[in-house]
Write a protein that binds this DNA or RNA. Structure first.
Length: 931
RNA sequence: GCCGGUGUGGCGAAAUGGCAGACGCACAGGACUUAAAAUCCUGGGCCCGUAAUAAGGCGUGUGGGUUCAAGUCCCACCACCGGCACCA
């Protein structure tokens, strides 16, 4: 800033009110059954009500990972938006839940520990302290009594508990939900029979149970990152590099914990219809789940009993399948390979195995593959078709094998062209289009066999007919495939939740796992001196030999949970954050997540504030969740999955956790680029606060533009809103007393905050009736701010506040009532200065203590006051503006028309023309059509 | 390649199909001041004009269309941002 004197003493005002709010616990949210102290402003606002009778509003921020770098200006963007809405809802009379916490497990603290030997707990605590100081300095109205920290044993005790709920469940496809594993029915062969040794049966049953659990162990090829010393989930690998740090990763088979999220694929997809998220976000989740409908078809291997099963979305093109392709890793490859091809196949396989996925995609421009020498029989026409292997077929999707229809599939077409494989037409495209490589719907042709014909049918009809035929002949069946994979849930790290799992050895010398009892929770990680993985690739926890080995010979699981675990359910812990007996009480869960509070008569009927039903579903769960797009698929999908399991098991009462979700846009650097250390364009909120104060900072973050848009930071812009706050201040306070205050400040800087008492209200502020013009300005502002807050349009709401102040600055006499209402409107945006001025207004009266501004009822506006008597009506000729005429608001159409035609400015444009038509919209405009 | 989003002054942005550019930044001129800072007032899309006005013309990424009227609706395209990407 260009130095200059402070616009107003925010440096005293802001800490003053922040400590007042802290001492008073002003923003505590009240749970059902809690007794609100009579002196609390909530009780003063709602003297007769108990919390559960009030409509609730749960407004949630994505909690931050407390990094060492501290807050950057992107964090407070969403936090400011939610804080404004929280304060607005409180003013409307809602019981508002607005919590914050720390997603504090994670890699940076652990890597720092590896380097320095400092326990991650310590780094984490320091970082949390920094974040907390920064967040508190912004004056957010969080309920700090509900603060959570995912690394706190009192918290992760319940993360582990939820893991056990998942572990102890299986997904029943009949009921389409999770059920207790104890109630899992066994197949007939595992029913107890006479003559079968009990021990053997019990082991088989255990293996069967373990294979059905929602949390299971699998030897899976996983992404191993040498530098990070851990495996990564598919989602954490970007372009063959680790998302964190950008280190190379390799495929490696390892024993891992997996969560069966795929069982929920359909519900995760379907239930998107019941929630109010942005289109793009829902689309990203849909793409990630990747549902595709089609059929599985069995191709008999020629001269063999073996069968190759393929998945296709286009069973209608079966007659066009001229060859098949297996993924190189497919289990039938060896059996199909002829001696002549053996060498080429082996060479290709080992070449593919060496390639990382990055290389595989990079080289994807050119298709590669090798003929196995084997043949399969096309079930529709009995033709012998060659079977190839190629890396464009992925082992992990569908069945790992395809029928190739080069006529109507881009990839198959490329491949067939390169290797001179036959290409035949089986779909007729619309007239004028080339059928070669035509992949969209058309009409089937050349699709007649001995038993079945679909020639002449449209693609959808053809699909239906051939699928029915395949099912009848038991050659295949309709199937749905998903891209979504099960969730790789274990990490080889220290700084994460240990699994509450023991490994034991059975009578057959096979290892098996067993859950710890709930009473053993929380299971704390051991103390370590060295946080690195062991030299033989064991996780760091394996270094704690005493911790791992139990006296009875069982051994603890040494993997830990991924960072996502803690963030999968934190919004539930907020509901009842200090409960030691449960993750959350059922009463708290039903009140805050349910929709019953909404029906209260205290809810004003409003169009946008009560979110409209989505597809007939009532709003439920978190009312508004605000955060960045970077969590569009991972966190938001995992959390929905856990929530659904908890819902199935009866622990929560809603099917979805987050009813409405809004992504705030990225704040870019002043150069319009993404903020980053390397570009040197990072803005530190602390610097801005010192210079302009928290209120100006908050205001600017919201004034920049629409919440969801990306927008560049401009410190000059902060000065604009800062000047606005200065004008607000000068509107209220007496100039003389402020000059004295400034002088006292210089001579006696120690006295600080009590000097504020010496600042008097401006003389023009009087307890008088506002004029009609003043009321119009005020009520116009109330209307605009109210509507804009309902629509999350913070930038235009602020501009309405500016318009009001610009007008009020010209008032000779300033009615107290109008200024009071203005402060109520300003409070959500700039709470500190609003509270200060509010208390000054009330100091003029003899009330003992003014009502806390944060709980004062939101004003309503009177539309009658906004009506104009004389309107300025634009007059157009052929759609072009020619004049603006003043007419009485109630002027009838005929009068408007006459006035418009009489306009001197309009006449020249009508000369020599005939008037064809005059469009008159009363109160709006007149358009004269002439030719 | 596919999906989603965004294109409006020098800049951030506003605008139920009805006066494009509210509000703010930057800029220019003025008042106050010995001077500056701060503050207050005034101006402002571009072009053409004029001593200064006025009047006029052109303007919301490009090209078409619908309409009395289009930033807004429809079609085609271009650019940028985000996501996915050999998913059969």
């Amino acid at each position: 800033m260009a130095s200059g004197r402070r616009q107003y003493p925010f440096h005293l005002i802001e800490p003053k009110w922040q400590s007042q709010w802290e001492q008073q616990e002003t923003f505590r949210a009240w749970n059902p059954g809690e007794v609100v102290p009579v002196s609390h402003p909530f009780a003063e606002r709602h003297p007769k009500a108990v919390p559960e009778q009030l409509p609730k509003f749960y407004i949630l921020d994505m909690f931050p990972y407390p990094s060492g770098a501290g807050l950057h200006v992107g964090h407070p963007e969403g936090y400011t938006a939610t804080d404004i809405l929280s304060r607005y809802r409180r003013a409307l009379g809602y019981n508002v839940l607005h919590p914050i916490g720390w997603d504090a497990f994670g890699l940076p603290a652990e890597q720092y520990a590896i380097k320095t030997g400092q326990h991650p707990r310590k780094t984490t605590e320091q970082n949390i302290a920094t974040f907390k100081r920064q967040i508190k300095s912004l004056g957010f109205s969080y309920d700090w009594s509900r603060e959570v920290d995912t690394t706190d044993p009192k918290y992760f005790r319940w993360t582990q508990w939820i893991f056990l709920q998942i572990y102890n469940s299986w997904f029943n496809p009949q009921t389409n939900k999770a059920e207790p594993i104890a109630a899992l029915p066994y197949p007939p062969e595992l029913e107890g029979r006479a003559g079968v040794p009990d021990a053997g049966l019990e082991q088989q049953r255990r293996a069967y149970r373990d294979s059905k659990r929602l949390a299971y162990v699998a030897e899976a090829p996983v992404w191993w990152c040498e530098q990070l010393g851990t495996v990564l989930a598919n989602e954490e690998v970007v372009d063959g590099m680790s998302e964190v740090g950008g280190f190379p990763v390799v495929r490696k088979p390892m024993r891992q914990w997996m969560l069966r999220i795929t069982a929920y694929a359909e519900r995760l997809l379907q239930d998107l219809e019941t929630i109010q998220w942005s289109n793009s976000l829902k689309e990203m989740q849909r793409n990630w789940i990747g549902r595709s409908e089609g059929a599985e078809v069995d191709f008999r291997v020629a001269d063999s009993t073996a069968v190759i099963r393929v998945f296709t979305t286009r069973p209608d093109t079966l007659f066009g399948a001229t060859y098949m392709v297996l993924a190189p890793e497919h289990k039938l490859v060896d059996a199909l390979t002829t001696p002549a091809q053996r060498h080429a196949i082996e060479a290709y396989k080992s070449e593919v195995a060496k390639k990382s996925d990055l290389e595989r995609t990079e080289l994807a421009k050119e298709k590669t593959g090798v003929f196995t020498g084997g043949y399969a029989i096309n079930p529709v026409n009995g033709e012998r078709i060659p079977v190839w292997i190629a890396d464009y077929v992925l082992i992990s999707y569908g069945t790992g094998a395809i029928m190739a229809v080069p006529g109507h599939d881009t990839r198959d077409f490329e491949f067939a062209t390169k290797f001179n494989l036959p290409i035949v037409q089986v779909v007729e495209p619309p007239a004028g289009m080339d059928w070669h490589g035509y992949v969209d719907d058309g009409v089937s042709v050349n699709s007649t066999g001995a038993d079945i014909s679909i020639s002449g049918l449209s693609t959808p009809d053809a699909k239906r007919k051939i699928s029915g035929w395949l099912e009848a002949k038991q050659l295949g069946k309709r199937t749905v495939n998903y891209k979504l994979r099960d969730w790789l849930f274990s990490r080889q790290r220290y700084w994460g939740e240990p699994f509450p799992i023991l490994w034991k050895t059975g009578p057959d010398a096979q290892a098996y796992h067993e859950a710890l009892p709930e009473s053993a929770l929380p299971l704390l990680p051991p103390r370590l001196d060295d946080y690195k993985p062991t030299p033989d690739g064991q996780p760091p926890l394996a270094r704690a030999k005493d911790w791992v080995a139990l006296p009875d010979g069982s051994r603890r699981e040494t993997n830990t949970m991924p960072q996502w675990a803690g963030s999968c359910w934190y919004y539930l812990r907020y509901l009842d954050a200090r409960n030691d007996g449960a993750f959350c009480s059922p009463e708290a869960e039903r009140y805050w997540m349910g929709s019953r509070g909404r029906q209260s008569a205290l809810t004003r009927p409003k169009e946008e504030s009560a979110p409209t039903d989505v597809g007939g579903y009532k709003p439920q769960g978190v009312d508004l969740y605000v955060g960045g797009t970077e969590h569009a698929v991972l966190h938001l999908l995992y959390a929905r999955f856990w929530h659904k399991v908890m819902f199935d098991l009866g622990h929560v009462s809603t099917a979805e956790p987050f009813f409405r979700l809004v992504n705030q846009g990225l704040i870019q650097g002043e150069d319009g680029q993404k903020m980053s250390k390397s570009r040197g364009n990072v803005i530190n909120p602390d610097d801005i606060l010192v210079e302009y104060g928290a209120d100006a900072f908050r205001l600017y973050e919201m004034f920049m533009g629409p919440l969801e848009m990306a927008k560049p930071w401009n410190t000059k812009g902060v000065e604009g809103v800062y000047r606005f706050l200065g004008r607000v201040w000068r509107l209220f306070v007496d100039e003389q007393s402020e000059t004295e205050f400034e002088q006292n400040m210089t001579t006696d800087p120690q006295r600080g905050v009590e000097l504020l008492e010496g600042i008097r209200l401006a003389a023009g502020i009087k307890d008088i009736q506002p004029t009609a013009a003043q009321l119009k300005a005020l009520h116009g502002c109330i209307k605009k701010v109210t509507e804009d807050l309902d629509g999350l349009r913070f930038n235009t709401a602020i501009s309405a506040l500016m318009v009001f102040i610009n007008e009020a600055m010209t008032w000779e006499a300033k009615p107290i009532s109008a200024l009071r209402d203005f402060l109520i409107l300003l409070q959500p945006f700039a709470p500190h200065v609003s509270e200060e001025l509010w208390s000054k207004l009330h100091a003029t009266r003899d009330t003992q203590h003014p009502p806390a501004l944060a709980y004062v009822a939101w004003p309503s506006y009177d539309p009658a006051l906004l009506v104009e008597d004389i309107l300025e009506i634009p007059v157009q000729v052929n759609g072009k503006l020619r004049d603006v005429i003043k007419v009485p608001a109630n002027a009838p159409q005929s009068e408007l028309e006459a006035a418009a035609l009489a306009s001197e400015k309009v006449k020249p444009f009508l000369e020599g023309k005939t008037i064809r038509k005059v469009i008159v919209l009363p109160k709006r405009l007149v358009n004269i059509v002439a030719a």
